[in-house]
């Protein structure tokens, strides 16, 4: 009897409590909302608006005479198209190489004893303790005319100084972004239920067969997350191609910087930035779609 009388009261109280709870939740999220809106959403909108703006003869962006010139230029201008194409290829190859190098390493880490595992993860993260710019300049020394990498190449008769070439850019990009590949891969492999691999082996799969049929598909979320995390910054990379690639291999990041600082064509720079973001957005959407399929 008492239960029946109490029931509606309880439901009301619960609803009120839930409302209070969600208000409290909003309060907790407020600082990051403020931060993201002012420092991320607003600048993004500015870039979006500038993409449609025009440019004065002196290079001042004019917020009038709105047009689609900058956007059509992305699709029609041969230079932009080739730079864009090259950047996508560089980003894809960087991602593929990171995956190829990162997967075995992540697998190795994930299958070690806990103490060794933590130590190895620490090693993966140590480079972050030093500024990325500084580390990239360090590569310049390594790859330079008298650098140890160059000397080794000469000793083996395999390569000369790679500085300011595409291979140097790849080296720099892979070096910089490999941890972003290794960490999500590690997380995915570490979560893997090894009894599934044993089951595959028990069901006549060879070591490679079990890897291909079980380990690989079940760590797919890590592969996709790592690939996105490497592909996106590789596509927009500016520092590495600028410092290690010299002027020879302009990528889209360098092109954007040039538009803003040298060519003083802000609308075009904004439009190209937006184009990169669209590509990244598509990649991310694809990630969540395929990620959801494996869950």
């Amino acid at each position: 009897m008492t239960e029946r009388i109490d029931a509606p009261v309880t439901a009301e109280l619960e609803a009120a409590a839930e409302k209070a709870e969600s208000r409290r939740g909003l309060f907790l999220a407020l600082p990051s909302y403020v931060y993201l809106i002012f420092l991320f959403v607003v600048p993004l909108l500015i870039i979006g608006v500038y993409s449609f703006a025009s440019r004065s003869r002196t290079g001042r962006p004019k917020l009038e005479a709105w047009n689609l010139d900058s956007i059509t230029k992305i699709f029609t201008d041969d230079l932009i198209r080739s730079i864009f194409g090259r950047s996508v290829v560089v980003a894809l190859i960087t991602t593929a190489l990171c995956l190829l190098i990162g997967y075995p390493f992540a697998y190795y880490i994930a299958t070690r004893r806990e103490r060794v595992r933590n130590l190895l993860l620490l090693f993966v993260m140590i480079p972050f303790w030093t500024n990325f710019l500084v580390r990239t300049y360090a590569w310049r020394v390594l790859l330079g005319e008298d650098g140890p990498v160059t000397e080794l190449g000469r000793l083996l008769g395999l390569w000369d100084s790679m500085l300011f070439t595409l291979p140097a850019v790849y080296l720099g990009l892979i070096y910089g972004f490999l941890p972003f590949m290794v960490l999500p891969l590690y997380a995915a492999i570490e979560r893997l239920d090894w009894s599934l691999v044993e089951a595959a082996r028990d069901l006549y799969a060879s070591g490679w067969g079990a890897f291909r049929k079980v380990t690989l598909p079940l760590t797919r979320s890590g592969i996709i997350a790592g690939s996105i995390l490497v592909f996106i910054p590789s596509l927009g990379a500016y520092v590495t191609p600028d410092i290690l690639g010299g002027a020879k291999t302009t990528l889209i990041g360098n092109y954007i910087v040039n538009q803003f600082l040298t060519a003083r064509n802000w609308p075009l720079g904004s439009a190209v930035s937006m184009a990169i973001m669209v590509v990244m957005l598509l990649a991310t959407v694809w990630y969540f779609r395929s990620g959801a399929r494996t869950l």
Partner: peptide, 20 residues
């Protein structure tokens, strides 16, 4: 001899069914 070369099969404790 490795497990895939043995004429035996196992029913695992937690079943170990392939979720995918």
């Amino acid at each position: 001899r490795p497990p895939n070369k043995r004429p035996v099969n196992t029913v695992f404790q937690s079943y170990a069914l392939f979720p995918h």
